[in-house]
Every structure is written in structure tokens, then in C-alpha cells.
Amino acid sequence: MAQTNFSKIDEYGFQRSKNFNYEVYGDFMSQYYRVLARRTKRWEELKDSEKHKKNNTLKRFVRKGIPISHRTNAWMIISGAQLLREESMLTYNDFKQQINNQTIIDMIQIDLPRTFPDNIYFSNESLLPSQLFNILAAFAHQNNDVSYCQGLNYIAGLLLLATKDEEATFWLLKVLVEKILPQYYIKTMSGLLTDLDVLDELIKIQDPVVYKHIKDIGMPWAVATTKWFVCIYAEVLPTETVLRIWDCLFYEGSKILFRVAITLIKLHREQILEARDLGELVVSFKGMAESPNVINCHKFITDIFKIPGSFSKKTLDKLRSKHQQQ
């Protein structure tokens, strides 16, 4: 049995779920180890000039997955976080010095024990909760429009688990919220409302049958997909899959979120169409996280560039301005 080969805790410290499918995971990992080894070797061979600037080779490399050992550096470069840090008048330490607003501090402190409580690195004795606090509070104090918004705790938390680097996490969070993602986290959540409408239109075009079924049942997209956007799939899909999505997101921008959304829906259209009411529909969306299609992150990433077809930034910009919230 594959079961005996894998610990109940994954490599990022998460407790595997009760119905974790060890067999599917075992099958996948037996191939993925080889992929990881090869990718690591290829990254070692990558010239510095290719590693430090966006270029087509790097883009291809990113889509194939950034090895853990290279992730922090690669993310800093391809996301623009590095540049943001270099151009900033203030250092991360300066930002931390500004933490003084008790309302913000309280808000964040409420969420600390509610962020990945089942992760061994977020248990009480660990350093990570205090680092997470610093990151979220420093961020909140320098961005008045957002301040602290729930969801950011999961993003920063997972960034921290992936990079194990408090300062890098701060800059990555900042570049994500302020440059890469639309205005999901401001008071009106206008960016989220727009993107939910954009998703609506995309699914109508991509899969009219599924679209009609969802409309017939009467499920608003927000019900099943708020977290897809607000948490950029953290706390939604398996960790390794999320990190592979983030590799692409940092390089190619927020259109990746729609590639993933469309792919998820199309890969699971049978389950969606079988749902007879809202309850079953919500369950079918939740179940996507445990499907073999998604656990196999390597294939899933190939799928997101194949299944939705061509999807340019220009198309997305057009759709977004069409659905802009008043």
C-alpha cells in the first residue's frame, strides 16, 4: 500500500485531510519525484542572466514549476517584488516600526490562531504566528485602502510556509495586493465583484451547458468562488497545486486565476451537472480540491494553458472594464 510511504503531515506542515487519497497521491508522486529532480537540475543549469530577468526561457521554466530551493528568489524577481523593495524609500524594518493602530492590531490578532491551526508550523510555540503578525500588521499600516482584510492571512501564511522568509513574504504580499491582483481587498471589494461577473461571462462562453445548469439552480458565483479569488486558491486546493499556480500568477498576472477557474469547472463538469440543488452544487465545487485531476499539479498546470484556450490580457482587460462596478 502506498499509504505507508507518506506521512500524515505534508512537506509544508499541513495535516493531510481525513479522506486524503493516498493511492492517487502515491501514483502521482512516483512520477512527480522524477519531475522535481529534473526541474531542480535544469534550474541549477540556468544562467544567471536568464534567472534574473523575465524572458521566454524563464517563463517556460516557471510554467514547469519552480523547485522549492529556487522559489523565494524566483518569486521575488518575476513578481516585481524585488524591484519594489529596491525602489522603496522604506525598508521592511521601517514599515514594522509604524505598527501602532490598536484596532488593526486587534483585528489581525483575532485571525492569527484562526490561520492554518492544523499546520504544525503555526502551532503556538512556533515562530511563524509572530512573523505572520508582523507581515500583516506592517502591510496594513502602509496601505490605508486595504488595511487588513481576511484572506490575506491565508495568503501571507502560505507565502511564509513556502519561503520561510518573513521579509520576502512582506514584499511578495505587497506586490500581490498592490500590483498583481485587482482591488479585491478594499472596502467595497469592487475588484472581486467585477471578477465574479467576468467569470460569469467566461463560463457562459466556455461551457454553456454548465452555465445554464448553474443558473437554473440559482447559485451566485460568489458562493462557490469567493475564495478562489480572495485567497488565490490558498485554503482551497492542495498546497503543491496552489504553489504551482502562484509560480504562474507571479509571472503572468491575475489572468491565471481565470485560467484555473475555467479549468476547474470544465474538468469537473460531470459532477456539476449531476448536482440537483444548491447544496449538492456547493458540495461538488468543494470536492474539486480532492480530485485526482487537481492533485496531479503537474498535469493540472498543463491543463490550465490548454483547456481554456487562448486568453490574452487584452481580452481580460476588456471584460473587466465592461463589468466594472459603478
Binding site: 492554518f116 491565508y154 475564495k227 456547493v282
Partner: peptide, 13 residues
């Protein structure tokens, strides 16, 4: 006791 932050509304019957 270790409940997580609710970001997305959930639905139960």
C-alpha cells in the same frame, strides 16, 4: 476550538 477564519460563505441544510 481551532476554527478557521470564514472567508467564503458556506451553506448547510
Amino acid at each position: 476550538s481551532s476554527h478557521i477564519t470564514t472567508v467564503q460563505a458556506s451553506f448547510l441544510t
